[in-house]
Design a protein around this nucleic acid. Structure first.
Lengths: 352, 352
DNA sequence: ACCCAACGTGTTAGCGATAACACTCATCGC
DNA sequence: GCGATGAGTGTTATCGCTAACACGTTGGGT
């Protein structure tokens, strides 16, 4: 069954090899270096038991042939792909895109590559298609940048099959998947506290879509801080995330009566507010103070420069990858959220 | 060497299989369906020569076992990974991130998955590391979202080994790689033409870093349009891409004398200008008209709403992927740039 | 001296898929 | 009637790699 010397199989392949359109394999390197392919493998995988001289010879042969190990073959036999899947909402918004960049850097630093997919929304069907795709790809773990709280439920069944870290979707999710996020409530509290310290007593909130995790948390933070300060909690004003809606609300407030301060769920809304106030001749922060959330590029150059809350996406990305790797390795993980930071600028001032 | 009936190898594996931590393979499906693994493969690959009844049986077995084909094994034997590599600059800017989202959708629609990598800058060393990584991964083609013109030179040697499409880096690059971009010159011309039509005769340009392809093209477009209109070409004002620099320049202009109109290389710069003008009591568009470039979210709510040039990133992404697939298939490609669109808003008005 | 551990290396056997070829029946033209 | 054709299926050989084991060499310990 065996017996054959090395020649036999080589001869059998030689006629094809003559044309040789294929890249060099380990075997070719081995031949050139005068060792077995296994030794080449050992060199590549930094096994200790290889004589330094042999190692050098192999390395040279690799360089000479321009050899690169075939990751498919490797993945096949090791059952590890070295790939992480990342799912993102398909919107070029500042938060998710910053996160994904941070995620990739962290994954790369850990020796993983990232396969990513975008999703227009997070329906059950789409989610399951994406996971199916990732399974077929053999990813070792998945990060879902999932703004909607409902995603937590949707991904639960998949999270049982593979380690999953969710960013900003549902705290206290249980053992199946691992949520991590910036502490949105704290961010909102910082914003409100800042206004309270400036003497504001009537702080309204323009809140984002409540099925978004972040929006809901910010709302809770705002309410909580007002309550803790012993202030009245006015009815929140409903909004999406857009500048257009902010503008609309700003006009309405200017017309129907201004509060002392407004805490907007994000910077786009705040931008719309500022513009509406400017048009209506309302002075910011003279007549009303405005705080945003996100610190998007440019918010320092709004009129006036916007006081806002900054999220550390880099940290978030690093932590998410760290958690995912821990989950893959079966280690315990730390779910502590990342603290955000208040960035005080000119859109807030002492209460009138 | 062979002789052994099907049993032999199975028996040999059975002791391990008893623990069975591994997912079902084609063989298992075949066994359950009472066919050979090759027939399973045929069903999966939609070969015509499979009886409908057999097909159904196999499909059922697949469903029952929750079988998923192993992409590593498939890639190994077919020498095709079904993966495209995408390189992006690691900055959460609107353009690149919009592009990458579009890119992924298009790739996904074409049955490819996307592995992506970010790069803080585009040094030769980094580029070569990234390509090395992609080669090891076995990607079939690469898209480089490369803002710097110099990238064209850097990637040339790699482009000889694998199909590469570059976005916004160096036109007329030769046969090695395939550049595609939004027509920046046209965009700039649209902006300038708009101003000229409003009667402006002194149109200065705040230009971006000239080693960026887009910035240089916009500059050329501005100059070209002025020349075609028979107007004087003032000295361009140097800038980076930031709101901060726009603010600085705006203050300076307000102090040292305003032109009739300003064409800023991007919306962030324009935002800075607007703010500086507002602070200096300069009216826009009364005293000076301002045009930006990008149409970032929120630019409709600047004060005043910004006239700008919109790029169709979706189209760009689709086209880039289309080109890459053509290149992989060895078909001829169409390098025609994508036309941008002027978005007139309130920051421009008739010349004083 | 002698046994054994360890080092350095080679051999063999898969990983899970596809490709190429072989084989068995029907069906068809002449 | 009989070989040719083609549909439907199975067999075998890889793809390029790593794991597991086998084998000769050294170098201590006693």
């Amino acid at each position: 069954m065996t017996g054959a010397d090395d020649g036999a199989p080589r001869v059998a392949r030689t006629p094809k090899a003559a044309a040789r359109p294929r890249p060099p394999a380990m075997h070719d390197v081995a031949q050139l270096a005068g060792v077995s392919h296994q030794t080449v493998s050992r060199v590549l995988n930094e096994h200790p038991n290889v004589r330094e001289e042999t190692r050098q010879r192999v390395l040279e042969a690799i360089a000479q042939l321009g050899y690169r190990r075939n990751s498919a073959a490797r993945a096949l036999v090791t059952r590890r792909s070295g790939v992480l899947g990342v799912v993102m909402i398909s919107a070029p918004e500042f938060g998710p895109t910053s996160t994904i960049i941070a995620l990739e850097s962290a994954a790369h630093a850990a020796g993983y590559s990232v396969s990513f997919t975008t999703l227009p929304n997070f329906s059950t069907e789409q989610i399951s298609r994406v996971f199916e795709h990732f399974f077929a790809l053999g990813v070792e773990g998945v990060v879902v940048i999932a703004p909607l709280s409902s995603v937590a439920e949707t991904i639960r069944p998949f999270a049982l099959q593979i380690p999953v870290v969710t960013i900003a979707a549902g705290q206290g999710a249980g053992q199946e998947f691992h949520p991590i996020s910036v502490d949105q409530q704290l961010g909102a509290r910082l914003a409100v506290r800042h206004l309270v310290e400036l003497g504001h007593r009537e702080i309204v909130h323009v809140r984002g879509p409540q099925d978004w995790f972040d929006a809901h948390e910010r709302y809770l933070g705002w309410r909580g801080e007002l309550e803790d300060a012993g202030l009245a909690v006015p009815e929140p004003i409903e909004a999406d995330w857009s500048g257009a809606r902010g503008f609309e609300i700003g006009r309405q407030l200017a017309r129907e009566g201004l509060p002392s301060a407004v805490f907007a769920a994000n910077d786009q809304l705040a931008l719309g507010l500022l513009r509406a106030f400017a048009e209506a001749g309302v002075s910011v922060p003279g007549d009303v103070s405005v705080v945003g959330f996100d610190d998007i590029p440019g918010s320092a150059y709004f009129q006036p420069p916007l006081t806002t809350v900054r999220q550390e996406f880099d940290q978030l990305g690093r932590k998410a990858i760290g958690m995912l790797l821990s989950a893959i390795a079966g280690e315990p993980l730390d779910h502590t959220p990342i603290p955000p930071r208040l960035v005080p600028r000119a859109s807030t001032g002492p209460a009138a």
